[in-house]
């Protein structure tokens, strides 16, 4: 007899089967099959327009898929609001443009959703917020407004804001692409430490150093399809497909 907890841990965090997505007549995702286990770290890469962002945005239903099945933390996403709420409740997201709320202080950014969605009291939400702001080493900026912070600091606040919901998985959509080069490291360091703590992570990024360091699997996409996936070691050493090699050639040429 299996213990109920065992079946739960065996359940994947994300399961996508035969997922299709169209923007009008443009076929953005083609037959996507992807399973992400609890605790797994996935790096998604590929040329722009290849569908990587669309893919992770389907996971928390910011995009609606048009075929196939998506199950996240046991909830099947079928455009019913209850399942969408349940998924967003347990999946955090970090965006390329940070998307902090400009009219709220760092602390207010971090307590809004915990109070409205998790129904925490203000005191509980603030305690949680301070804990995660410390965690991303920005606790001393709690009373500033987003516009008063550097890009790197803003992105770390965005990570803390997502963590305040105590998610089971985190989606990162090119989290360092909008940053000045000198600020990339502080954000990547935060992500690495999150990975070390066992967070399930799906990251769209071209930071190949990060991929080598933390990814369990690297997935390469092109034209809406998953072209190749492998562990980072083999992915970088021996890419199988011509398109992967061409992409890596371009990305790594300057490193």
């Amino acid at each position: 007899m299996t213990h109920p907890n065992e079946t739960k841990t065996a359940q994947p965090m994300v399961m996508m089967r035969d997922v299709e997505k169209y923007y009008g007549t443009f076929h953005a995702l083609k037959n996507i099959n992807l399973t992400v286990a609890k605790g797994e770290k996935i790096v998604l890469c590929g040329p722009s327009g290849s569908g990587k962002s669309t893919l992770i945005r389907c996971i928390n239903a910011l995009e609606v898929s048009h075929g196939g099945e998506i199950v996240v933390a046991g909830h099947s996403l079928h455009n019913d609001q209850k399942a969408i709420d349940a998924v967003r409740r347990v999946v955090g997201m970090v965006f390329q443009q940070f998307n902090l709320f400009p009219h709220k202080t760092v602390l207010e950014n971090c307590i809004l959703a915990p109070m409205r969605v998790r129904k925490l009291s203000r005191a509980e939400a603030e305690a949680t917020a301070r804990k995660y702001l410390e965690r991303v080493r920005i606790g001393d900026q709690a009373d500033k407004y987003p516009a008063q912070l550097s890009g790197g600091q803003q992105q770390r606040v965005a990570i803390a804001r997502a963590l305040c919901m105590e998610p089971k998985a985190m989606l990162f959509d090119e989290p360092t692409s909008a940053l000045d080069p000198e600020m990339v490291k502080e954000v990547l360091d935060t992500m690495v430490s999150l990975a070390r703590d066992g967070m399930t992570m799906i990251c769209v990024t071209h930071e190949m150093g990060f991929a080598r360091q933390v990814a369990d699997r690297v997935i390469f996409m092109a034209d809406g399809e998953i072209v190749e996936e492998n562990d980072p070691e083999n992915f970088f050493r021996a890419p199988k497909h011509q398109r992967t090699r061409a992409f890596l050639g371009e990305i790594l040429a300057h490193h």
Binding site: L62, G92, M93, F95, N99, F101, A113, R116
Partner: peptide
Amino acid sequence: IPTGQTEAGLALGLHKHE
């Protein structure tokens, strides 16, 4: 207002009216 603001709110689990 950039759509990213709305998306960030939705991704945090807030409803449209919130």
